[in-house]
């Protein structure tokens, strides 16, 4: 009996082994390689001569990197918090046993079916002051109407938040709605017996119960924040100037347009470190709980 169990475990390990090898070769090895390259003076092609922190010095002295990094924080905080609040609100509204629920669900989830490139282009046209919303409202007679955030240096990053929220709120709604539907009807009955108003029941009982669902939402959206590249490229190309640049775009530009993979690797390492710092508290909690 014991031998059979051992055998099963061995087989299981053997089956998992190829996956582990693929992950190590395709994910971790390139990370280590990039980490090393970030300490070399590599230009268009790799150069394995060790050069210390020179790439990081240059990175920290580059204004564009600071702008990109700050934009990631602004974008991350606003996008995640607005998309989750709006998505949850929509889920709660749909949860009120409304008529034609499926129609509303489909409409709200629809933007998610579009790629970030299409989303970005559509919003770029919509927000362009000479042919989009501003132009349309001015033609209707409100000549003083202005909505030109897209071309304003200090506001362009917020237009990207708007487009991303539009794109992803539906996803949050779908996940949260699934969570709400999974709540035991007895709890609802209990709140009615106690005479708790519906809004308070949602705010103080149902949503806190949905913590695991919310964590899923945050993780899914946060992944979008870190990898966001296509949306900016399609919408503003990082402009005006480089005011709406994001780290992902910075890395790709350095590596492929400017032939500077050393600088690109240093920036990629800085991104990795940021992600690591962000998930650290979560990992720590997990470890504490299990250990």
């Amino acid at each position: 009996m014991k031998a059979a169990l051992l055998k099963n475990a061995t087989i299981a390990r053997l089956v998992v082994l190829p996956t582990i090898v693929v992950i190590i070769v395709c994910f971790y090895a390139p990370i280590l390689w990039s980490a090393y390259i970030s300490f070399t003076p590599s230009g268009m092609f790799p150069n394995y001569h060790f050069a210390g922190l020179m790439q990081y010095d240059r990175l920290l002295a580059t204004d564009r990197w600071h702008v990109a990094f700050r934009n990631m924080l602004i974008f991350g905080v606003l996008f995640v918090s607005i998309a989750i609040s709006l998505g949850s609100l929509l889920a709660i509204l749909i949860d009120q046993n409304i008529k034609a629920e499926a129609v509303f669900r489909t409409i709200l989830l629809y933007p998610l079916s579009m790629s970030f490139i299409v989303t970005g282009l559509a919003w770029q046209w919509f927000l362009n002051p000479t042919m989009g919303l501003q132009h349309f409202v001015q033609d209707l007679g409100w000549a003083g109407f202005r909505f030109d955030w897209l071309v304003r240096r200090n506001l362009s990053i917020y237009t990207i938040v708007i487009a991303a929220v539009w794109h992803s709120s539906g996803l949050v709604m779908a996940i949260t709605l699934a969570g709400l539907r999974g709540i035991d009807p007895d709890i609802w009955r209990a709140t009615r017996v106690e005479g708790i108003p519906r809004w308070r029941a949602y705010l103080h009982i149902m949503l806190p119960m949905l913590r695991p669902v919310m964590v899923t939402n945050v993780v899914l959206l946060a992944i979008n924040v870190v990898k966001s590249y296509d949306l900016v490229v399609a919408m503003t190309q990082g402009g005006p100037g480089y005011s709406s640049d994001l780290p992902g775009k910075f890395v790709v530009d350095m590596a492929f347009q400017r032939g500077n993979i050393g600088q690109a690797s240093a920036a990629a390492m800085a991104m990795l470190a940021t992600v690591f710092i962000a998930v650290m508290p979560y990992l720590y909690l997990q470890m504490k709980r299990s250990g």
Binding site: G43, M44, R64, G241, Q257, N260
Partner: peptide, 11 residues
């Protein structure tokens, strides 16, 4: 100029 410098000038 190198592609890297060109990029910096553009920025």
């Amino acid at each position: 100029y190198t592609a890297d410098q060109e990029g910096q000038v553009k920025d």
